[in-house]
C-alpha cells in the first residue's frame, strides 16, 4: 500500500512540476523547434523564400526551424495541415493568394480561409502582367479589347494555372467589357511562355516575366493588380482601368486560428526585422519578388478583404468558370 501511495505522490509532484515548466516556458516562445509547412514542391519560389526566412528567423528567435514541404491538392493540403495544427505557434505555414483567396471558390478545400487561419505577416507581392510578344501589333491593353470585340472568340490567351488569380481577374475584366475570348488552359508559366513566343497564343497573363521582358521577347501591357509594382511602374493596373477584380498576388506566413498574442507579436517583430534586412531584400530581388511587408493586423484585414471581393465579384459578374 505504502508503495502505491509513494508512486501516487510522485505522480502528483511530477504533474505539478510539468505544469510549472509549461507555465514557465509559456512566457518565452519559442522554447522548441518550429515547423513551417510549405504547400509547394522544394525548389519553387514559395519554398526558396520560406527557407531564406527560416535561416534568418532561426538566428533572431534562437530556435531551430524546420521547413516541411507538404504538396498536393493545388497547395490546399499543406494549408489544411496548418489550419488543423495546434494553435501553439510551433506549426506555421507559407500561404499565397491561390489556396487562400482563389481556390476556395472552385473546390471544396479542407479549411475555411476566413476562419481557420491566423494571417501573421505578408512579405512579398508579385505583379502578374498581361504579356504579348515583343513584335506583337497590340501596343496597349485597349488594342487587345478592340481586337477581341471585333473578332469574338478569336483572341487566344492563357495563364499559368486554371482558376488562378490572373485567370479569374482577366476573365472578369473581359466579362465586364462584354468580350468573348478563347482561353487555352495550360499548366505552368513555362508552357505559356513557349506558346506565346511560338505564336500559338496572342496573350499570356503570369508572374514569371523578368527574363523574357528584359530580353524584349515579350511586352507588358497591363497588370492585374491594384497598385503599380516598382519594376512595372509604367504599366497601368486593372484597377486604374476600372475593372472590379484586382487581386494581389502575395506570399505570407500564417498559423492556425487562435494563435496566442505572444506568438503573434514575436512574429510581427521577427518578420519586420527580416523583411528590412539587406540579405532578404537581395534574395527577393533575385527571385523577382517585391518586398511588401504587412504585420498581422494589416495582413489579416487585407486577406479577408480579398476573399470577400473575390467571392462577390464572381457572383455578380457570373464569370465563366
Amino acid at each position: 500500500m505504502k508503495f502505491i501511495r509513494t508512486v501516487f505522490h510522485a505522480l502528483i509532484i511530477l504533474t505539478v512540476v510539468l505544469a510549472l515548466v509549461e507555465v514557465a516556458t509559456a512566457g518565452n516562445y519559442p522554447s522548441k523547434p518550429i515547423t513551417i509547412v510549405v504547400p509547394y514542391a522544394p525548389g519553387g519560389g514559395g519554398d526558396a523564400f520560406t527557407r531564406a526566412i527560416a535561416l534568418q528567423a532561426q538566428e533572431i528567435l534562437g530556435a531551430k526551424i524546420f521547413v516541411e514541404n507538404r504538396m498536393g491538392g493545388g497547395a490546399t493540403i499543406g494549408v489544411g495541415t496548418v489550419a488543423r495544427a495546434r494553435a501553439d505557434g510551433y506549426t506555421l505555414g507559407f500561404v499565397s493568394s491561390s489556396p487562400v483567396v482563389a481556390a476556395p471558390n472552385f473546390f471544396n478545400v479542407p479549411y475555411d480561409p476566413a476562419k481557420d487561419l491566423t494571417y501573421l505577416s505578408r512579405f512579398i507581392i508579385s505583379a502578374a502582367p498581361v504579356l504579348v510578344r515583343g513584335d506583337s501589333k497590340f501596343q496597349s491593353f485597349r488594342d487587345l479589347i478592340v481586337y477581341a470585340k471585333a473578332n469574338p472568340g478569336k483572341l487566344l490567351w492563357s495563364t499559368a494555372g486554371i482558376n488562378g488569380a490572373p485567370h479569374i481577374a482577366t476573365e472578369a475584366a473581359f466579362t465586364q467589357e462584354g468580350i468573348k475570348s478563347a482561353f487555352l488552359p495550360m499548366q505552368g508559366s513555362t508552357e505559356v511562355l513557349a506558346a506565346l513566343l511560338g505564336g500559338t497564343i496572342a496573350m499570356g497573363v503570369m508572374s514569371d516575366y523578368a527574363g523574357p521582358l528584359a530580353a524584349g521577347d515579350v511586352r507588358a501591357l497591363a497588370d492585374i493588380g491594384s497598385e503599380r509594382v516598382p519594376d512595372l511602374a509604367e504599366i497601368p493596373t486593372y484597377r486604374e482601368m476600372g475593372y472590379a477584380l484586382t487581386p494581389t498576388i502575395f506570399f505570407g506566413l500564417a498559423g492556425p486560428a487562435g494563435l496566442p498574442a505572444e506568438v503573434i507579436s514575436t512574429w510581427d517583430h521577427t518578420m519586420r526585422t527580416i523583411t528590412a534586412s539587406a540579405a532578404f531584400i537581395e534574395v527577393a530581388k533575385r527571385l523577382n519578388g517585391n518586398v511588401a511587408y504587412l504585420d498581422h493586423k494589416a495582413f489579416q484585414a487585407m486577406v479577408l478583404d480579398e476573399i470577400g471581393t473575390m467571392r462577390e465579384t464572381l457572383q455578380s459578374l457570373e464569370v465563366p468558370k
Binding site: G43, A48, A210, G211, P212, A215, R286
Partner: peptide, 13 residues
C-alpha cells in the same frame, strides 16, 4: 532557380 539566385537571368542577354 539556381541561376536566378546567382543573379544570372537566362536568356539571350
Amino acid at each position: 532557380g539556381a541561376l536566378l539566385i546567382q543573379g544570372i537571368v537566362p536568356g539571350p542577354l
